[in-house]
């Protein structure tokens, strides 16, 4: 990210160097042949496995294509028309948004709380706690999903704990009920990824200079006042970046949700990725074109968020610069 925004690009200054560049392009290419050789693996790999799929998805989205072994037939905007009228697509879209709206603030907020605690010099064993909270981050999402189907079983420890705490009357499997399955998924997701967001916040807290804290002390601010009026305002630029990183994370939950709920029961936790996977790979008659159309719309959603990210980060950068 930094590369582009902060790259000084010493020799390229478009206004002054345009004319000589154009003249010497061939000579430059000849002189720099080894540079392109260094780039070759990236150009080939990235071209074939990222750029080509990006473009191809759009083409596939216009096809009726019932399997990799078959050839697709062009059907124009048919897939998009069907998608917009498909209740299950909108259901998946809503579930993804709901996931995002509930899970991201929970993850960002709880992680900040943890980071503030762990950053305090009076918290003992903060290194140990940090390690513990980070532990699930390194684990395999799909396996965590399966393990939690056991933990969430009606006779499992979570159900027992809920009864013991008086939250539920009788043992219940939260994943097996349409009303709670998505929220169970959100809870497991927050549990799994909280540690990484906590690390982001801790890194952000480290950027607050010590003299800011000392100045606040001299002004007679107590801990709470310092938190509200000094620390939190300084964290706002990071809030933007961290929220957006986590938002992108919340759109990539296939492994966890597929293994934890499989999208069920009765589509109650079917996020967009599961919808795409089901349509393309898990159906008796694969609908690759239809799934591609859904993927394209999903990609657009992510793209919008990426643009928001770019704008937000730029804004946040200005804020940090203004502050320092």
């Amino acid at each position: 990210m930094t590369l582009t925004t902060s790259a000084p690009a010493p020799a390229i200054s478009p206004t002054t160097a345009k004319e000589p560049h154009r003249l010497s392009l061939r000579r430059r290419l000849r002189r720099d042949w080894w540079i392109y050789l260094f780039l070759l693996p990236t150009l080939l790999g990235y071209g074939a496995y990222t750029v080509y799929p990006l473009v191809a998805s759009w083409w596939y989205a216009f096809l009726d294509w019932p399997g990799f072994a078959m050839t697709g037939t062009f059907t124009g905007l048919d897939n998009f028309r069907r998608l917009l009228a498909d209740d299950l697509f909108w259901n998946a879209f809503r579930k993804s948004l709901l996931f995002l709206v509930v899970a991201v603030p929970a993850r960002v907020g709880l992680a900040l709380l943890l980071a503030l605690w762990l950053n305090s010099r009076r918290t003992p064993f903060s290194g140990f706690f940090r390690t513990l909270f980070f532990l699930p981050v390194v684990t395999t999402g799909a396996i965590i999903g399966i393990v939690f189907t056991l933990l969430l079983d009606a006779n499992g420890p979570i159900s027992l704990a809920l009864v013991w705490a008086g939250i539920t009357d009788s043992p219940t499997n939260l994943v097996a009920s349409a009303g709670t399955s998505l929220y169970a998924g959100i809870a497991v997701w927050v549990w799994k990824w909280l540690g990484i967001t906590m690390i982001y916040w801790l890194a952000a807290l480290q950027t607050i200079p010590r003299d800011v804290h000392e100045a606040a002390m001299l002004d007679g601010a107590n801990a709470r006042k310092e938190l509200w009026h000094v620390t939190l305002p300084l964290l706002v630029p990071f809030l933007v970046i961290i929220t957006l990183i986590d938002t992108v994370g919340a759109l990539n939950v296939f492994d966890l949700m597929q293994t934890l709920t499989g999208g069920g029961p009765s589509f109650s936790s079917e996020v967009i990725e599961i919808f795409i996977y089901r349509t393309a790979f898990a159906a008796t008659v694969p609908q690759l074109g239809y799934a591609s159309a859904a993927a394209v719309l999903f990609g657009l959603l992510t793209m919008v968020l990426a643009v928001v990210q770019a704008v937000g980060v730029r804004w946040a950068r200005r804020q940090t610069k203004g502050a320092s």
Binding site: A48, Y49, T50, Y52, P53, L54, A56, S57, Y60, F68, V248, L251, N252, F254, I272, E273, I276, Y277, A280, L288, A291, S292, A295, V296, F298, G299, T302, M303, L305, A306, Q309
Partner: peptide
């Protein structure tokens, strides 16, 4: 930020 779910069909085909 291109999600994996977006590219999986063309990547499989390729």
């Amino acid at each position: 930020f291109l999600p994996e779910g977006y590219t999986i069909i063309p990547v499989t085909q390729l």
